[in-house]
Nucleic acid binder design. Structure first.
Lengths: 207, 207
DNA sequence: TGTACATCAGTGAACGCGCGTTCACTGATGTAC
DNA sequence: TGTACATCAGTGAACGCGCGTTCACTGATGTAC
């Protein structure tokens, strides 16, 4: 990562990770404005001087935490998207399992994704990192679905798949955003979400 | 509005509006962290003392600006949702025009909605105000669509309409969020969005 | 192996800055007679 | 109508606070002979 001064001893590598973990923990628990340098080093059991030996400034810390979170989400998606698991699957099965997977990823990584979405939605650097990792996952799923091109009756299969992925991920993101605000009247059950999103994509691709 | 000290002269009413306009302008142009009291009064051509004669604190200013923005979005939706415009409309026309309307509202009020969503997503007061106005619009559209219940072949029309509205609004919100990232590869053209979202909802409601 | 020295890592008091807010004050407007 | 007084509105210097960051320093680790 270009925005940190690389550690040269195992000791400072551990300190670096303690700082990243502490920042992430504070961000998740109390939001961005609680992530101050004094608070991060306190939570990490480190010191201000150590902090600035590693990071040029506070922004670099947040970028590193974000980069790490995006990488972890991608790793989780890569595991689930292993092509070996998809041999000879029908379009319906790809859609069904794809929706289930998206629901699972967005569910398990909801808090950290949300915290960053909320904290840095206006920041081009953060938005770009986020958009790039989202696009990476969408591309993998699109490639998978396009192997069943002949089962898609929508006049433009590429566009239909892109739109389907947008709709599914956006709906899940919106659900995550709602869940933070804690309003019961806008919540949906996960099983309903899976069933209806699957139905929506199936009927749309065959429109 | 209970969180301001009501003006008693036309002069201070004008000052109040200048402060609100200035705060909104700064929020839109440079984000929440640029909205400081010194900056707002400078932009408004007013003074710190005037500010605190009107608002008990800075938070009250932001709540008032938010309340005003929500009201304006609702007024815009009410205009477009005037029942007189929808007499004898077919389900397809309701879907088509509904999607177009959503795209228009999310387009024209993108900046202000985004700014507040980003700045106050975790705050109960702001979340409640936002949810109230969003739910109001969804309910109106749902009522409209349910008048054509017999044209919907989905086994659960209420749920289908709710999911459709979620998918459409979420896709538009996601598009707005992506637009800050400045990555051309994730942008979609508005005409394509209208066409495909319409197709998606049509086929889904008839699934 | 031991020793001397260089580099890496860590510490926390201190500094400057800009924020939200207060306050003593001046000027404008409304009201009673 | 004019005048005196109360209230409303507006001003901007000043204050306290917590932030991000710096810096002079101590201690730990690696290396050369």
């Amino acid at each position: 990562m270009p925005w940190v001064n690389a550690p040269r001893q195992a000791r400072s590598q551990r300190t670096l990770e303690k700082l990243l973990d502490a920042a992430e923990r504070i961000l998740l628990a109390r939001g961005l404005e609680a992530v101050t340098v004094p608070e991060v080093v306190r939570e990490a059991g480190s010191s201000v001087g150590s902090f600035y030996a590693r990071f040029p400034d506070k922004r670099a810390l947040l970028e590193t935490v974000h980069e790490r979170a995006c990488t972890r989400t991608l790793e989780q998606a890569e595991l689930l998207l292993d092509p070996a698991r998809w041999r000879d699957a029908s379009l319906d099965r790809i859609i069904d399992t794809g929706v289930r997977m998206a629901v699972q990823i967005y569910g398990s990584r909801r808090n950290i994704m949300n915290a960053f979405a909320v904290a840095f939605a206006g920041d081009p650097g953060f938005a770009a990192r986020r958009a790039r990792s989202a696009k990476d996952i969408r591309d993998r799923l699109a490639r998978l679905a396009l192997t069943k091109r002949d089962e898609i009756t929508h006049p433009d299969p590429e566009r239909a798949i892109d739109m389907s992925l947008r709709a599914v991920t956006a709906t899940l993101e919106q659900r995550n955003a709602f869940s933070v605000s804690g309003l019961p009247e806008v919540e949906v059950e996960e099983s309903i979400l899976v069933e209806e999103l699957t139905r929506m994509v199936r009927s749309y691709l065959r429109a």
